[in-house]
């Protein structure tokens, strides 16, 4: 039976700035089914292009513990990082989700069951939620829910 987890990260918006990076293992194919992004900074009219992009090598960031949706579940196999100082090596053009968003707006996207973003079962693979480009430098928050 699938188990559900989530991670909440943040980043300073800019060119290729990861808010939340998921690193899989060879034991599981995580399925991302919900993505949320918002900004807690003072309202300003700036825009950013948000992407979920697959990567083949992890970056350097602050380790984050994935939260269990069901407290009775074991710890997540996926590991998370946030606010990366070194970005992961992404796969060009492999962007399963993207949305341009004004800083004053928030979005919540979720996939129907069976239509999730599936990540490969590999120790080097994963996906990152990041700003691909941004006109501002405000701190944004991003969350992803996944099952494994």
């Amino acid at each position: 039976m699938a188990r559900n987890y989530y991670g909440n990260g943040f980043c300073t918006a800019g060119t290729n700035k990861s808010a939340l990076e998921l690193l899989t293992t060879a034991a599981v194919r995580p399925k991302i089914y919900e993505v949320m992004v918002g900004c807690s900074a003072a309202p300003a009219s700036q825009a950013a292009l948000w992407q979920v992009q697959r990567h083949t090598a992890t970056g350097t960031g602050t380790a984050l513990t994935a939260v269990k949706v069901d407290p009775a579940d074991p710890a997540a196999l996926v590991t998370c990082k946030t606010n990366n100082s070194v970005e992961p090596t992404v796969t060009a053009a492999d962007v399963p989700w993207e949305l341009a968003l004004n800083q004053q707006a928030t979005f919540d996207w979720h996939a129907n069951p069976g239509k999730e973003i599936v990540l490969a079962a590999s120790a080097t693979a994963g996906a990152t939620l990041k700003t691909s480009t941004s006109t501002g430098t405000a701190v944004h928050q991003g969350s992803m829910y996944w099952e494994e």
Partner: peptide, 13 residues
């Protein structure tokens, strides 16, 4: 056609 996902964007507008 049935959708595969759903998106909600909230903004001041």
């Amino acid at each position: 056609m049935l959708n595969d996902g759903y998106l909600i964007i909230t903004s001041p507008d």
